[in-house]
Structure formats: structure tokens, C-alpha cells
Write a protein that binds this DNA or RNA. Structure first.
Length: 646
RNA sequence: GCCGAUGUAGCUCAGUUGGUCAGAGCAGCUGAUUUGUAAUCUGCAGGUCGGGGGUUCGAAUCCCUUCAUCGGCUCCA
């Protein structure tokens, strides 16, 4: 007998060799039908594998990420089986479970192109195979046999993967006619896979290398119940309505023009108002925190970027340098503000007493992003960073870094951003030539970031290979409406630019010393931040940010005079207000202005005109009752300061 | 840049196999109505069917090319 310990600490004896599925069945048959994987002694495993020793034990249902993972990974095998049936000779790359479903990278060969029109047929084949309920069978196999098996199928992608594996660690999973190299775990069979949707089709380079062949990636998602799939599709549809590109157009916030150029956003008056509100807010916060605001030009001499190292790293992928009538003179559109800021630092001498020097600029930069990378306001070729650089003594680095973490958290809190994550981005130890600077400085910088994040009790994930070329960073990521991650804030430690620009300060010993530089942005860029804000709020911006705070709706033309009077009072009180004096019914006016996401709708009719009041309706919430105009002004002001004090 | 898809009025979309297929709703402008908390009615105007080239007696529709957009990949200082 073996002792199985459950997550709640309870334990029970079972016969040696019992499977997780059998344990679940003994607990209840219903549970057995709802579990998809198990963790045995910390190891995620198939339900059908025998347990030979005492073990800590946990079953994974759909609600666990592990359960979904097994479900979707099995679904990816199921799709592969369907593909193999429909496209004989098709070759397989990798086919993992992802956050929302799964994909498989395939090479159909023979110049066959799989298009979206083919997806329903593949879905149907999957449904047919799933209904057959073939079991997933695990097999351990030697490297030699694995190579032989996949060579015989001509599956060169799989043999490449096997070639890199240690002998003795190779497992296969078979289901129906399909056999795959796979670590598992998998469902006991394809039977629980009831609802199937292949969602999209894309190209993906083999092993993520753009020099290698592009495979066809088929994305799909599956559920144990049709209802769950239906709900998911409704959710996706709702999310698409929050897309900032759509809302940006509906609410007239920003646009793009082919005549101006792709990826070059044009802020319309209302969008520019939102953007300016954010800038004003942040500028106020920065001043309180000892930042000095600076301003630099949109171009810089190429030698500036050769000094910083950016030219060597990105010169070829940038907007080409601008030539002048002067022979040999070349300027670049500013792709970042840091080199300019270094020269501002160098413009005056610095004493150790004056550090840290915090320099901030809303600096517009230009980067030649590849055409296929552009995406609404989140990925553009011209954007304004809320950039700042902290120049500090080495002994100040940690505190300075921590103060920036506080600042980011403060701003996110005011803006009610809850759903963000923090990522520590370190260099790729395998690929050191991608980075500049000494190993010693890199280690110091990485250590400082890890320590500061830990000190602030920030929950972080560490990703190697995501560092900037001059230093490691702490990035703040948020999700858009459909779950894509975008980097907003970033804090980066840099020992390299101070060297390259020969930045110094006089120490207490009257010797020259090298400051450390921290690059940081909170919003990241005004463009991306507004985009994420729109998607998070579905366009219902907080009052203080809304470009228009209220709209007056006279019930009929008879009250236009009074309405105009109220309009003037509100606008003179700095509450940006509109009037909707169309000869429409109030119902219509309310509907139209609700859809414009104007925070307050002020209905005015006979009663109001007589008593000098307004009838206040809050966007999305309905009638709030009658108020004196003066009280409304006070109310709006207090609402705004409440939001900003948050 | 790469793979796949899409592009018809300001917006959202119809438009079968090439032949009354240049259409609708919303928005806009007219006129009527004077309205009490999410859509009043009338009329009008709006498009070289993304651009260019080709096939054809005839192209929104088929082919080529180009631009842009969308979903991914790669990239993201």
C-alpha cells in the first residue's frame, strides 16, 4: 500500500500502482469525469500513470491552469491527427497549449496552402475523431528509436528536436493514428473534448527564426461543453467592441492618414485633450518628486547616436539619416531621448551633493517599425514617451530605483490600473554579444533591479534575453481587451551611457566619479497608454480625463436660452460642456450622448428653467436627480479631486 | 519584412454563377414636430466598389500588380 496525501493535508492508503484517475473515481465518479491531469509529488502527470510510492497528490480540473493545459495540449494532438488524415504527408513542428487554447505549427508540403476556408473541414474531422474517444498512450523510447520513427515519416522538424534531447528522456504519446514526440501530460482520451473552434491561421517561423522556413500555425480552442465555447465567443465579440482602434474612431480621439504615413498617429481634438490631461497630471506629480522638466529637439547629429551605441545597434533599421547642404553633415530623427539628456547632464558640472538629478521630458521619438508590426496606437512609428533619466551616485541607485517603483505604482493606482504585471528583463547569458558593457556592470545592474523589486514586495516574473542592449530592466505590462500583453512602464539601470558620454560628478574627495543612469517611463508612451486606457475602460474614461465632462439636453427649443446660460456658466467654470439643441426628443438625445461616453447628461426643461436647476444623469447609471447649477459645479470639482487623490 | 485574410458612402454592412447590383441602416443636410431620461416622421444628398494594369461585347465580381488594414511570426532602443 502507498500513502496519498491530499492538498488539505488529509491522507489515505491506496494500493501500489493505482492511477490518479482511479483515485478520483473512488472519491466520486463525477470528479473523475471532471479531472484532466494530476500533480504527484510536485510533478504534473497523466491521470492514467500508475503511482508507485507515497505521494503528495492534487487533481486538476478545468479551473486549474494545469487542467486546461492538459486539455488543450491533447486538443492540439487531436488537431494534428485530423490534419494528418486530411493532408497526408503533412509535417509537424511544435504544437503546445497556450494561454487561450493551443496551436500547431505545420508544413503541409507539396505547395499546399491551408487557408481559413479549410478550417471548418479540419474542425469537423476533429469532432469525428474526438467522438471516437481514442485513449492517449504514453511511451518511453530511446533516442535512437525516436529518430528512426520520425525519420521514417520524413518528419525533419521532429528529428531536429529529438536531436537536441538527452537520451532516456524521450516520451511519445499516441492517440488514434497519431504519434507525437511529447512530454505530456495528456487527457486519458479525446472523449472529453466536446466543443472545438479553430480560431485563426498564421505564419510562424520554424523555431522563431526569421531566416528559417515559415510554417503554417493553426490556432484553436476547445472546451468540455458547447456552452463554454459559446460564452467564449461572446466574450471575444465583446472584447472586440473595446478595441481602442474602434473606440478611437467612434469617439473621434485619433486617426491615421495614408497621406501622412502609416504608423503616424494624428490626435483629434478630443484625443489630444485626453493626452494633455495625462501630461498635465503627470507633470504635476513629477514636479512634486523633484524632477526637472527639459526639452530637446526632434533630431540629433548622427555622432550623438554613434557615441551612445544606438547607431550601431539600430541605425540600419531606423529612418535613414537626414542629409544637409553641408557636406558630410547628417542628422537622425530622434529615436530616443537618452543621448540628448546625457548632453544636458554634461552641460553643467555636478557635485555629489546635487545628485540624484532627475530629468524628465515628454519627448516625441521616431522609430522605423517594420510594416507588419504596426498596430493602432500601441505600436507606431512616432510616439511621445513620458521619458525621464535619473543620474545618481552608485550608493543612491537602490533607493532611487525603489522610488521609481513607488511612482509607477502610485500613478497606476490613481488611474485604477489593477491588472498589470511586473517583469524583470535580464540579458540572455547565452548571447552576450547582443549587449554592450562589462559583465561586472551588468551583474551589478541586474542585482540592483532584483533587490529593489524584492524590497518593494513586487510580484515579478524573470525573463532572460529581454533586457535592453545597454542594461537590464523592470517592465510593467498590461493586457489589452483580447489579452495581448503590452509593456507600459519601464525602469532600466544603465552603467554604459555614462561611460560613453563621459558623465561625471565631483565626489566628496574632489575626484571625478561616474554616475549611474536610470531610464524610466511610466506610461511608456502617450499613444500606447491611451490605447490601453481605452481598452480597459471601454472608452468610459474617468471624469478628470474625459475630454468633455457634460452635455446639456434641452427638452425643447423653448428652453434653449436657459440651456445656453447654463452652458456658459459651466464652461466658464472650466467644466467643458456641450449642448445638444437638435430638435429631437430627449430619449434620442440621451441615447446619442450616452454612446459618446460623455460622463454627465444635463436635462433641462420647464421645471429646471423655472427653478434655476439642472437634472443630472450620469453616463451608464441613469437619473441622479435635480441640482442647482452651482452645486453641480462643486460636485464635478470634488469628483475630480477625489479621483486624483485616490 | 514574412504567412494568411480583408478592402463597396463619414460609420456598419448587403450585393448569388461576370449582364437594371451601385444598395440598406446609422450619421449628415431639409422640412414638419416642441418633445421629461437609451432611437419621432418626411424628403434630399453621399461611392471612379482601396489604387494601377489586364481578360471580356460587358468587371464591385475573374487575373496580375501595388497600397493599406486585420490576425499571427519576427522585431520592439
Amino acid at each position: 500500500m502507498i500513502k496519498i496525501t491530499f492538498p488539505d493535508g488529509a491522507h489515505k492508503e491506496f494500493r501500489k500502482g493505482i492511477t490518479s484517475l482511479e483515485i478520483a473515481e473512488q472519491i466520486s465518479p463525477r470528479l473523475a469525469s471532471e479531472v484532466y491531469a494530476a500533480t504527484v509529488n510536485g510533478q504534473l502527470t497523466d491521470l492514467t500513470r500508475p503511482i508507485e510510492n507515497d505521494a503528495a497528490f492534487k487533481l486538476h480540473k478545468w479551473d486549474d491552469p494545469e487542467g486546461k493545459h492538459a486539455f488543450w495540449h491533447s486538443s492540439s494532438h487531436l488537431m494534428a491527427e485530423a490534419l494528418e488524415a486530411l493532408y497526408p504527408g503533412i509535417k509537424f513542428g511544435i504544437g503546445p497549449a497556450v494561454e487561450n487554447g493551443f496551436y500547431y505549427d505545420v508544413d503541409p508540403g507539396n505547395n499546399i496552402v491551408i487557408t481559413e476556408a479549410d478550417l471548418p473541414a479540419i474542425e469537423n474531422k476533429m469532432k469525428e475523431l474526438a467522438a471516437a474517444g481514442h485513449p492517449f498512450i504514453r511511451e518511453e523510447i530511446s533516442k535512437k528509436d525516436a529518430l528512426k520513427l520520425f525519420e521514417s515519416k520524413g518528419d525533419n522538424y521532429k528529428t531536429e528536436l529529438i536531436g537536441e534531447l538527452e537520451d532516456g528522456t524521450i516520451t511519445l504519446y499516441r492517440s488514434g493514428t497519431f504519434t507525437d514526440l511529447c512530454r505530456g501530460p495528456h487527457l486519458p482520451s479525446t472523449e472529453p473534448i466536446k466543443a472545438i473552434k479553430l480560431t485563426s491561421l498564421a505564419g510562424a517561423y520554424w523555431r522563431g527564426d526569421e531566416k528559417r522556413k515559415m510554417l503554417t500555425r493553426i490556432y484553436g480552442i476547445t472546451f468540455p461543453k458547447q456552452k463554454m465555447l459559446d460564452d467564449y465567443l461572446v466574450f471575444l465579440e465583446e472584447a472586440r467592441k473595446r478595441d481602442h482602434r474602434r473606440i478611437g474612431k467612434e469617439l473621434e480621439l485619433f486617426t491615421f492618414s495614408p497621406k501622412v504615413g502609416m504608423g503616424l498617429p494624428l490626435w483629434l481634438p478630443k484625443g489630444a485633450e485626453v493626452r494633455q490631461n495625462l501630461i498635465n497630471f503627470l507633470t504635476g506629480v513629477l514636479r512634486k518628486r523633484g524632477y526637472k522638466i527639459v526639452a530637446t529637439p526632434h533630431i540629433g547629429d548622427v555622432t550623438l547616436y554613434k557615441t551612445s551605441g544606438h547607431y550601431e545597434k539600430y541605425g540600419a533599421d531606423s529612418f535613414k539619416p537626414i542629409s544637409t547642404p553641408q557636406e558630410g553633415e547628417q542628422f537622425m530623427l530622434k529615436p530616443m531621448n537618452c543621448p540628448h539628456h546625457c548632453e544636458i547632464y554634461n552641460a553643467t558640472p555636478h557635485s555629489y551633493r546635487d545628485l540624484p538629478f532627475r530629468m524628465a521630458e515628454f519627448g516625441t521619438v521616431y522609430r522605423y517599425e517594420q510594416s507588419g508590426e504596426l498596430h493602432g496606437l500601441t505600436r507606431v512609428r512616432s510616439f511621445t514617451q513620458d521619458d525621464a533619466h535619473h543620474f545618481c551616485r552608485p550608493d543612491q541607485l537602490l533607493d532611487e530605483f525603489k522610488s521609481i517603483i513607488d511612482l509607477v505604482l502610485y500613478v497606476f493606482k490613481v488611474l485604477n490600473f489593477k491588472d498589470f504585471s511586473a517583469q524583470i528583463s535580464l540579458r540572455d547569458p547565452e548571447n552576450r554579444q547582443k549587449y554592450i558593457g562589462s559583465d561586472e556592470n551588468w551583474e551589478k545592474a541586474e542585482k540592483a533591479i532584483i533587490e529593489a523589486a524584492a524590497d518593494k514586495n513586487l510580484e515579478t516574473t524573470v525573463v532572460k534575453g529581454e533586457a535592453a542592449f545597454y542594461g537590464p530592466k523592470l517592465d510593467f505590462m498590461v493586457r489589452d481587451a483580447i489579452g495581448r500583453k503590452w509593456q507600459l512602464g519601464t525602469i532600466q539601470v544603465d552603467y554604459n551611457l555614462p561611460e560613453r558620454f563621459d558623465l561625471t560628478y565631483n565626489g566628496s574627495d574632489n575626484q571625478k566619479h561616474r554616475p549611474v543612469m536610470i531610464h524610466r517611463a511610466i506610461f511608456g508612451s502617450m499613444e500606447r497608454f491611451v490605447a490601453v486606457l481605452i481598452e480597459n475602460t471601454a472608452g468610459k474614461l474617468p471624469l478628470w480625463l474625459a475630454p468633455e465632462k457634460a452635455v446639456i439636453l434641452p427638452i425643447s427649443d423653448k428652453f434653449n436660452d436657459y440651456a445656453t446660460k447654463v452652458l456658459e456658466i459651466l464652461n466658464n467654470s472650466d467644466i467643458c460642456t456641450l449642448i445638444d439643441d437638435r430638435s429631437e426628443k430627449v430619449g434620442k438625445k440621451i441615447r446619442d450622448n450616452e454612446l459618446k461616453r460623455i460622463p454627465y447628461l444635463l436635462v433641462i426643461g420647464e421645471k429646471e428653467a423655472e427653478s434655476g436647476t439642472i437634472s443630472v444623469r450620469k453616463q451608464g447609471e441613469g437619473d441622479k436627480g435635480v441640482m442647482k447649477t452651482g452645486d453641480f459645479i462643486e460636485f464635478i470639482r470634488s469628483e475630480i479631486s477625489r479621483e486624483l487623490e485616490n
